[in-house]
Design a protein around this nucleic acid. Structure first.
Lengths: 249, 249
DNA sequence: TCAAATTATTGAATAATCTCAATGATTTTG
DNA sequence: CAAAATCATTGAGATTATTCAATAATTTGA
């Protein structure tokens, strides 16, 4: 899976700590978890990235990046599960995405304000590669195919954000929750422990609802046999009906 | 400004018609309205774009692209003013952006689904360059600096969308309207006729409110001497207070 | 393992926002 | 220019969604 030769530093010193890579990490050439865009790189370019990266383990619950913080790296999930969200005061965040192995975090810091525009937190222990922004930038300029793959990512990303805006902007509670459940369910197909890592508040923050409203609606959906609730585990029994609810708004 | 050698075709035949370019349009090499990214192109690349573009005039009120429609071109505003919005049923759209001269429309169709993910409408008569997607793609691959400039655009774009999500997702009416007014006011500094082209419903659709709520809140802001209303014209008298309202949500 | 802390659930009251309907103002069109 | 159409404004009532408070269930940590 990933390089296991990692050692925890001061495991009891504080609740949230980093595991530092004290060994040679997997080189980019041999990495089996590489994103599609890396396929466009020639070996010397891969080596170049390899020389400008660090591997780190983030523990479950740790913030990987924090909205507003100085963005020194582009992060790449070499193996993990991450929640991406917009930070707001009053403990009412907006969850945007679940990120899984082989996805980037903080791409926009390459050319943006040099700060992260969102926060991310590890939903389970996650191994990350930290790539230097400068190196990344150099590669983009040198290799148009690589840059094109990044642009492809942005196209998809934009589409997702539009969907979110549509959902928040003119759907009512049932539609918003349906959108959320459909999204999370699809993610859970790729990462079957997903729901075990999500609280009701997490789901509420995805849908832009209060936790209480979310709980009530989930119960209704259960009573209508559209979903099945079993503790944190959620299963969709009638996806068509959910989609219909999503459509109606 | 732009090439005036344009002739209306069948001006009385239908309310909405295109003016077709029956002359040589301004070549990309000489164009003074070019986006920053075009500066990264060498003359032969500019000529290449030039050979693969068409110029068209869209009349005020005409749809330039329609969400869900087949996306054959990337559009570039050579001179104009455009509203970008998400189409929804029940006549309740979400306005996302005001686009002005030198901005792109439909960039994401380059690598996305081959359909537009949003609609755009000309707020005033607008001259557009239609660029072939294929040519655009070829340039991206060939010229990493060009691609990097496009990525820069995406970074900024993403930031704006996050802002929108924050606003819709956890601000109440006053905060959402304040965000909208601040945004539109800044745009109006660059295009002073802007407000004359916007109805109350347009403003409401930017803020994600009903038209009636928008009207009521605008009146309150006027009574509090935070803005000045004069028909369609809106002026901000106390930007700090508006920002405070935006912050409070 | 047990107590403390956190998370989930439920109901009732409250607040936010929208819809509908009516009227006035402005713009468009023949 | 006058009628028609569209847009702006206002109030009242209905709807949607949140908050607060209380309790139950689950998880965490010593």
């Amino acid at each position: 899976m990933f390089d296991r030769r990692l050692v925890a530093v001061e495991p009891k010193a504080c609740k949230k700590f980093l595991m530092l890579d004290i060994s040679e990490s997997v080189s980019c050439r041999e990495c089996t978890k590489s994103a599609r865009c890396f396929k466009t790189l020639i070996p010397s370019e891969l080596d170049f990235i390899n020389q400008n990266k660090t591997q780190i383990l983030y523990r479950k619950g740790e913030n990987i990046c924090k909205q507003g913080a100085f963005a020194s790296y582009v992060l790449y999930i070499s193996d993990g599960l991450v929640k991406l969200y917009l930070d707001t005061p009053h403990n009412k965040n907006i969850n945007l995405k679940i990120l899984k192995t082989s996805e980037f975090i903080g791409l926009s810091s390459i050319y943006g304000d040099n700060i992260y525009n969102y926060s991310t937190v590890a939903l389970k222990d996650s191994y990350m590669c930290l790539l230097e922004k400068d190196s990344f930038r150099k590669l983009l300029i040198k290799n148009g195919s690589f840059a094109s793959e990044i642009i492809k990512w942005y196209c998809e990303n934009e589409k997702q954000l539009f969907k979110k805006i549509q959902s928040l902007g003119n759907k009512q509670m049932p539609g918003r929750l349906a959108d959320t459940l459909i999204y999370l369910y699809e993610q859970s197909l790729l990462e079957d422990t997903l729901f075990m890592h999500l609280s009701r508040k997490d789901i509420a923050d995805f849908a832009g609802l209060s936790t209480e409203s979310t709980v009530r609606l989930l119960k209704e959906l259960k009573d209508d046999k559209i979903i099945d609730l079993n503790g944190k585990q959620i299963k969709i029994l009638d996806k068509e009906k959910l989609k219909e609810i999503s459509r109606r708004g």
